[in-house]
Computed example of a mutant assay.
Amino acid sequence: MTGAEILALTLRAEAGGRPVRAIEAVAALAVNRARLAAMDAATGLRFAPGARPGLGLAALLGLVCRVPFLFGCWMPRNPRRRALLLAMQASTEGTDTMLEACRRIAARAAAGALPDPTGGATHWHAADELPGWALGLVPTAEIGGLVFYRLPVG
């Protein structure tokens, strides 16, 4: 499975019921993390474990999506896991129009052609939740019911 396909499935599972702008914002966040992972080995370990020097953006996106705790759908016991499994099933059947939209967004992200409406965000959560890590932080953007933050890299 390509990095763009992993990103598309992730977008469908995590933000598929939200406006297209919100889905694009989640994709931009993944791109931000992939670009940070490409900076150096230490940052790569944080944002894309398993990344090798010279790995392209699309491949890095696949690694970023599977980092524990960023996208819950890849965690076996997370409630969004079911949405990922349904997206994977729909992927083989070709019956999910929202997954097709997520594929188009993921392709633009993998090509580096997706604008970033998040202000360089590296973290996010749904607006109706407030995880402990977000307490006291100022969001960089709120789009389609999702809140985005840029946390320090170092």
Rank of each mutant, 00 (worst) to 15 (best):
G72F: 08
P79E: 08
C65W: 04
R81A: 13
A111N: 08
G72M: 09
A58M: 01
T95V: 15
D96A: 03
G50A: 06
P76V: 08
V64A: 01
V67C: 04
P68C: 04
N78Y: 02
R81M: 10
R77V: 12
V67T: 13
A90C: 05
L57F: 06
L60A: 10
P76F: 06
C102W: 13
C102A: 15
R104P: 00
V67A: 09
A90D: 14
L84E: 07
Q89R: 14
A48C: 00
S91A: 14
D96F: 09
L99S: 11
W74D: 11
S91L: 09
L99I: 09
E100V: 03
T92G: 14
I105L: 13
F71C: 02
A48G: 05
L70N: 06
R104F: 11
G94D: 07
G54W: 10
A106E: 14
Q89M: 08
S91Q: 13
P49I: 04
R103Q: 15
A90N: 13
P79N: 07
C73M: 09
L99T: 06
G72D: 04
A48Q: 05
L61A: 05
C102Y: 12
A101T: 15
M98P: 00
D96L: 08
L63Y: 08
P79F: 01
G94K: 03
C73P: 03
G56W: 06
T97Q: 12
T97R: 15
R103D: 12
R108E: 14
P49V: 05
A59H: 08
L85D: 14
L60S: 05
L70Y: 10
A106W: 14
T92I: 04
P76H: 06
R103L: 10
A111V: 03
A109H: 09
R81D: 11
L84W: 07
E100R: 10
R82K: 07
T95M: 04
G72K: 02
A110R: 08
T97I: 08
W74A: 10
R46F: 09
G62D: 05
P53Y: 05
T92L: 14
L70C: 00
A87Y: 02
T97M: 11
L70W: 06
R77W: 14
L63H: 08
L84A: 06
R46Y: 00
E93N: 09
E93D: 11
R80F: 06
C73Q: 06
E100T: 13
T97P: 06
R108V: 00
A87E: 11
L60I: 03
F47Q: 00
L85E: 15
E93T: 13
D96E: 12
L55T: 06
P68F: 03
A48I: 04
Q89L: 12
T97W: 09
V64K: 00
E100F: 04
R103A: 13
A90P: 02
A58S: 12
M88H: 01
Q89W: 13
G62T: 10
G56K: 11
P53K: 02
A51M: 11
G72E: 09
A101F: 00
E100A: 15
A59L: 02
M88Q: 12
L85I: 01
C102R: 10
L61Q: 04
F69A: 06
P53D: 11
